[in-house]
Design a protein around this nucleic acid. Structure first.
Lengths: 122, 122
DNA sequence: CTTATAATTCGTTAATTAGCGAATTGACGT
DNA sequence: ACGTCAATTCGCTAATTAACGAATTATAAG
């Protein structure tokens, strides 16, 4: 019960759903997620820790950057199914579409600044 | 986004998950859900209204009883998938098993008192 | 060694929400 | 009509949690 509840609680927040959808375009480091959500670093850090604790994202440290990504096979079946549910039913959302645009626009303006942002284009 | 968030928020509470799992055994009226959860009527009523608003349960009034059940085809795809996810990953839970036992024991002791409680046996 | 950048932890505030008792509504039986 | 039982609504309190700024840790660059 506890692990399932951790997943549902992690998904019960708009900012965290937006973060997950941003990651569906590929790996992002925390500062990029911050710029997408337009929230304070401390806030986003906590959101991502919560998603990590629920098994809904993986992390990777590279230098001073902490990269987050959606998990693959290493994720629990519950987490993988939940993520499939979220991405499937949130694709048409306006808020999400705006986030994706923001992410890609920033990358086009200064690719060096957003090396980790694939936005589905690689 | 709003409807998806309504579902995740509805699922992000242990009492509501227990209520849904109790309903996976069949239709129950509110007072039966109350006796399973051992919470105040007002509290359970609010929980069920929230689940209803999220499209995760259906209602039916019969006299002074209000029956709740898991939805069938009338539910949105998002709700149906979410319910499948919940029941699949919560079946082995200890808390849930205890709830089911309680529900069936009460029915055996006084069948007349729990006519709506099928507990999977009809 | 010092500075700058990325991220986290900590402490606080504001908002949300679970829970309850009391009062209310609705339906049944007497 | 009256009392009763099921359920809801209302008002309140306690607990949870989202959000932030400030302080801290960690890594890289000058």
């Amino acid at each position: 019960m506890k692990d399932i509840l951790a997943v549902t609680k992690a998904l019960a927040d708009e900012s965290r759903l937006r973060a997950l959808m941003a990651l569906s375009g590929g790996e992002l480091c925390l500062c990029q997620i911050i710029s997408v959500l337009e929230l304070a670093p401390a806030t986003v850090s906590k959101h991502m820790s919560l998603l990590y604790a629920a098994g809904l994202v993986e992390r990777r440290k590279e230098g001073k950057w902490h990269y987050y990504r959606l998990p693959g096979r290493e994720a629990s079946p519950a987490a993988r199914q939940a993520l499939r549910w979220v991405t499937e039913h949130l694709e048409g959302s306006k808020v999400i579409a705006a986030d994706v645009r923001k992410c890609c626009a920033a990358r086009a303006a200064d690719p060096e600044d957003l090396t980790g942002c694939y936005c589905g284009t690689t």
